[in-house]
Every structure is written in C-alpha cells, then in structure tokens.
C-alpha cells in the first residue's frame, strides 16, 4: 500500500549530498538556537531548557561575568566546529560516491 510513496533508492543516492548539507545546516542552527528558547522559557524552569548559548547569555548579561560567558561561547564554538567537521567528512564521502 505504501510502496508507491517510498522514495526510490536511486533518488536517495543522488540526493545524499544535499541531504547531508541540509542536516549540517540544521544541526548548526539547532546547536546555536537562542531566540526561541529565550522568548518561550528563558531557559527555565530552573535550568531545564538552558543550552550553552542561553547559559552564556545569563552569565554575561544577567550576572555580568563576561569572562565566563565568553569562555562558554568559545566552548560552544569548538563544539560547533567539531560537529561541522564530522558532517563535512560525511559530505566529502557522499560527494565522492556520486561522482
């Protein structure tokens, strides 16, 4: 019944590069998300929805410990770099296999 709806493997093989790229961009965006959390919960209740970016904001702009806030920002940056590096390796492999 659902067979006609399934995407043929040929298409997924060709799309693989774009899919990895889309995943990369979304992963970056969700690692660095700030505005949605700030506007809805502001990291609360307590710190249940706090991510690194929110924590860095709280340290630097609520408690004015700019150095600690900046350190957290750098840690987050390193995290983003690592994740993007892994995804880019995947992207490389995908683009090799389609060429």
């Amino acid at each position: 019944m659902l067979m006609p709806l399934m995407i043929p493997p040929v298409i997924t093989a060709l799309m693989w590069k774009i899919i990895v790229l889309a995943v990369t961009f979304r992963a970056m965006d969700s690692l660095r998300i700030f505005d949605v959390i700030y506007a809805t919960t502001a990291g609360g209740p307590n710190d249940a929805t706090t991510n690194l970016q929110i924590m860095a904001y709280q340290y630097s702009f609520q408690w004015y410990q700019m150095g600690k806030g900046m350190a957290q920002a750098v840690v987050l940056l390193l995290l983003v770099v690592m994740v993007s590096y892994l995804l880019m390796r995947l992207w490389n492999r995908a683009s090799e296999s389609t060429q």
Binding site: F34, Q53, A56, F61
Partner: peptide, 15 residues
C-alpha cells in the same frame, strides 16, 4: 560567520 554562535560576537561587541 554563519556558523559562529552569535554570543561569541555579541559579548565583545557589547563591551
């Protein structure tokens, strides 16, 4: 610049 967390820019900019 698209990948850098904005907070890493905003703290120096603020000061």
């Amino acid at each position: 610049f698209r990948f850098v967390p904005f907070i890493a820019f905003v703290i120096p900019l603020y000061i």
